[in-house]
Design a protein around this nucleic acid. Structure first.
Length: 877
RNA sequence: GAAGGUAUAGCUCAGUUGGUAGAGCGUCUGCUUGACGUGCAGAAGGUCAUAGGUUCGAGUCCUAUUAUCUUCACCA
């Protein structure tokens, strides 16, 4: 029955083999048994263009832990895998390839040919990320794999689009939107990231018509948009400009006449108190323009060059080149009053980081207000729970403030919007199926060229993957899904949209719990990114340390929802744990005989240490199960770790040795059974976290089930609650006495066997009594306090067993010097920073006096610190 | 401007319902003891950011403050 394990723990030897075996045996497929409760998860679909990164690794690991646990607990589990077509990302990738390999653009190929290329690309590389997920050990039902643009998902998209349109929740409109000049498409609000940029504030004089020498000075950060100005606005209550309202200005460089208007939107005390109004290129100005019926002058092309219609001599120039040229011209012609340095937040494209331009355009929108209401309620009522709870606030905050969702994208790769225009009669038809002729006049129609935002289809993922709108068996059994596992960074993009979509179209919530995790950062706490080149490749980590070690490192050591740092230390300590488990198992295996089983011996045969470890294990089962229920995976794993290493390896195995080495004895047989039983239990609890090593060891031990994956998860066992007996106390006291005698005799630190006395580490299940403690006290000459807590026994025992080794007072001068130098460096940086700040006239002018004084004081303090550090370093030399 | 996170050992972080502060790594001492040096046995190191409050009792709950990070919204 028993097998042997190779001497060294080498995960590469068995991880792939085991994974293949699981797949062959179809263990990942949901159990068809109808009596079992269902548990389902849909994967946050990674981009088809994606390469596995640490974020995925964390996400998949957490999901797999949940799924494997539930599966072992007797649920029929379905974990739906799949990928996202990732509109912009994929299109850019294929365009790039086309450009590099063939020197072509997508326009050279035309829409149809280009899309063929994208599909080719998808078919060739789209499975890469999937095979990478498998390396992690993910137990997804691969027969259920989906793609956001496969037939079923596409059908769901159309169904949803048409439904929303017919309900008046999708509309087409000329609005101001965020435009990425690089991707040449509209973006939704969520797709714009704001980044602080150093810029300038240009103060420009606009001459007043008919009043020679009188100017209105406006301040702007984007002088080139002057070409699109259709008014200048002031606050109606601003005394300075009251007389100007209604006057006409001459737009410098252009010569066009624009009015001065009054609008509450303008804040008198910011800038000059006068604002140029450019309705086509600023969301606020757009609103002002609507209120005052101003014309909308769009002066940019799609690639952010100045257009021919309004550009004049600047036509065709890039926005920044035009800015430079126009500022030069303004200055030359005396219109430039002054230039201030100014740093402000600028919107950038979340894909390519290009600065976006707000501009007016014809786009499709989803009306959010009616959808947001039930989506809010689902969370506030607790029907959908966020874990950790605080993320519900993030969600609610966004839901309450979101604007209509711009869903059209000027791309080719994606779900083409199912709207059909008839040029002959001007009618637009929205249809679930493709149409060629206008239903009204019978003339040919052309389909809308825009595609939908990628997130439009991801929003349907929990039900589109289950076959909706068909009433499938999957849909009724596994939808709503149980838990959604994802990072807090896509609560807006994805989680929120899934919730309102699902409520609107299926009438049900998409999932019961949203389990949110943080970001994986590098060892310095920076975001992992391609541009920084600080990303750690999970596949390399797997190669070097094994998937189990990676999973362990990701699942432990940080509170739910918090970001985590990934470091070598962490992965090494994880690997060391795997190694420890491996070796402990080898020890157990090498002592087992052929007829040993992982079964408990008769309880009356158990020695005190057997009872101790069994009761501790029983307690472990309880806390781990509870923590898993509360999504405290890290705590659960931490418990398993310390039980395995401290209690099982360091204590129980050592204690068991005295009996085991007399292999024929009855005591040895009992000890072997208990070793085997507890080890098997550890493997089962650990399996969801470290599936490969636990499977490998499980297979070597005596076992009933074919695989640990389909074995039963341990449950709390009333039988394993023991009470300490009189003779146990005698035995403990005997041990302590023996240890003390031996210690005195040898005058050396106690060896491992001295640990026997810590059998007194009773858990609450042991019901340590006052009698036991008193006896212990008299045996170890320790005075007891008046409390009778189990933990007291530990401290008594510890005092009895320890030696105190005097520390040598050592100072490492080199290290100390390095530390001080580092501190000095930091101090100097601070001094530099403060000096610059205090030299900055802008800061001195704007900041209140106490703030400036505080900064001065800080500078003084830093200078003192610096002096002290320099002195300290000098002393070391 | 709004909301939220974080502040605990030299470093990175845990700490589940309030009850004598923990781990990993690092440091120091000793140990090639019949699975493991990816190890074993010990040790040093924390007034749990600050000030109040609730409580018999606060790292934990409440209030304020400071520092720091993030997200959202932004003034041209």
């Amino acid at each position: 029955m028993k097998k042997e394990l190779p001497k060294n723990y080498n995960p590469a030897d068995f991880e792939d083999r085991i994974y293949k075996d699981w797949c062959d045996k179809k263990y990942f497929a949901p159990d068809p048994d109808k009596k079992k409760p269902a548990f389902s998860i849909v994967i946050p679909p990674p981009n088809v263009t994606g390469q596995l990164h640490m974020g995925h690794a964390l996400d998949e690991t957490l999901q797999d832990i949940l799924v494997r646990t539930k599966r072992m607990q007797g649920f029929s589990t379905l974990w739906v895998p799949g990928t996202d077509h990732a509109g912009i990302a994929t299109q850019i990738k294929v365009e790039e390839q086309l450009r590099v390999n063939e020197g072509l653009t997508r326009y050279d190929l035309g829409r149809e040919k280009f899309l063929e290329r994208v599909w080719d690309w998808k078919n060739q590389y789209g499975s890469r990320i999937i095979s990478q997920l498998k390396k992690l050990g993910s137990s997804c039902d691969w027969d259920h794999e989906r793609f956001t643009m496969d037939e079923g998902c596409s059908r769901a998209v159309r169904e949803v689009f048409v439904n929303l349109y017919e309900k008046g929740l999708i509309y087409r409109g000329y609005r101001i939107i965020n435009w990425c000049p690089n991707c040449r498409t509209a973006l939704s609000d969520a797709e714009v990231e704001y980044a602080e940029q150093e810029g300038a504030f240009w103060h420009i004089r606009y001459p007043v018509k008919g009043m020679e020498g009188t100017y209105v000075t406006i301040a702007t950060t984007r002088p080139e948009t002057l070409l699109g100005d259709t008014a200048v606005a002031v606050n109606p209550n601003d005394e300075r400009y009251r007389d100007l309202v209604g006057k006409t200005l001459i737009l410098p460089l252009v010569g066009r006449e624009i009015p001065v208007i009054a609008d509450e939107y303008v804040e008198s005390d910011f800038g000059t108190g006068c604002v140029k109004i450019t309705p086509a290129h600023d969301p606020n100005d757009f609103e002002v323009g609507k209120r005052h019926n101003l014309p909308v002058i769009k002066m940019l092309n799609d690639d952010a060059t100045i257009n021919a219609e309004y550009g004049g001599k600047y036509a065709g120039m890039d926005r920044y080149a035009a800015r430079k040229a126009m500022v030069a011209d303004l200055e030359a012609q005396g219109y430039l009053a002054k230039v201030e340095k100014y740093s402000h937040n600028v919107g950038t494209c979340y894909r390519c980081k290009t600065t976006v331009e707000p501009l007016t355009s014809d786009q499709w929108f989803v009306k959010m207000e009616p959808l947001a209401k039930p989506a809010l309620e689902a969370v506030t009522s607790g029907e959908i729970r966020f874990e950790p709870e605080r993320f519900a606030k993030t969600y609610i905050n966004w839901m309450e403030n979101c604007h209509d969702w711009c869903i059209s994208r000027q791309l080719w790769w994606g779900h083409r919007i199912p709207a059909f225009y008839c040029d002959a009669c001007g009618k637009m038809t929205v249809s679930k199926t493709d149409i060629e002729l206008c239903p009204d006049c019978g003339k040919p129609v052309r389909q809308e060229s825009d595609v939908l935002d990628t997130w439009f289809s991801s929003a349907l993922w929990p039900f589109s993957t289950m076959g909706w709108p068909e009433k499938t068996a999957d849909l009724s059994r596994y939808f709503p899904t149980s838990t959604l596992v994802t990072g807090y960074d896509i609560i807006f993009f994805w989680v929120a949209r899934m919730i309102f979509s699902s409520l609107e179209h299926t009438g049900k919530k998409p999932f019961s719990t949203v389990f949110i995790h943080g970001l994986v950062r590098d060892a310095q706490g920076r975001k992992m990114s391609k541009s920084l080149g600080n990303g750690i490749d999970p596949l390399k980590v797997i190669d070097e340390y094994g998937a189990d070690a990676l999973r362990f490192a990701l699942a432990t050591g940080n509170a739910p929802g918090n970001d985590m740092r990934f470091s070598d230390e962490k992965i090494e300590s994880a690997r060391n744990f795997a190694n420890k488990l491996w070796n402990a198992s080898r020890f157990v295996l090498m002592n087992l005989t052929d007829d040993d089983k992982a079964e408990l011996p008769a309880l009356e045969k158990l020695a005190i240490e057997d009872k101790w470890i069994l009761s501790r294990f029983n307690q472990l089962v309880k806390t781990v199960t509870e923590n898993m229920e509360h999504y405290e995976l890290g705590v659960a794993l931490g418990e398993i770790y310390s039980f395995t290493w401290d209690s099982f390896c360091d204590w129980y195995i050592e204690m068991a040795k005295s009996r085991i080495f007399d292999a024929e004895s009855e005591g040895a047989k009992v000890a072997r059974s208990v070793l085997c039983y507890v080890l098997t239990g550890i493997l089962k609890l650990l399996h969801p976290f470290m599936p490969f090593i636990t499977e490998e060891i499980y297979g070597a031990l005596p076992h009933d089930d074919e695989s640990i994956m389909i074995s039963k998860y341990p449950t709390y066992d009333e039988k394993l609650v023991f009470t300490a007996e009189e003779e146990d106390v005698e035995r403990i006291i005997g041990c302590i006495t023996a240890i003390r005698a031996r210690r005195a005799e040898m005058n050396v630190a106690p060896s491992k066997k001295a640990k026997l006395f810590v059998v007194t580490k009773y858990e609450e299940t042991f019901k340590a009594t006052a009698k036991i403690l008193e006896k212990l006290a008299s045996a170890s000459e320790v005075v007891l306090t008046d409390s009778y807590d189990a933990d007291d026994a530990i401290s008594i025992a510890t005092d009895a067993g320890n030696f105190f080794i005097p520390m040598r007072d050592v100072v490492d001068f080199d290290k100390e010097r390095a530390r001080l130098s580092a501190e000095l460096e930091k101090t100097e940086i601070e001094i530099g920073r403060l000096s610059v700040k205090l030299d900055n006239p802008g800061f001195l002018a704007k900041a209140p006096a106490p703030v400036v004084e505080a900064e001065r004081q800080k500078l003084v303090k830093y200078n003192e610190t610096k002096a002290a550090l320099v002195a300290a370093i000098a002393k070391l030399k």
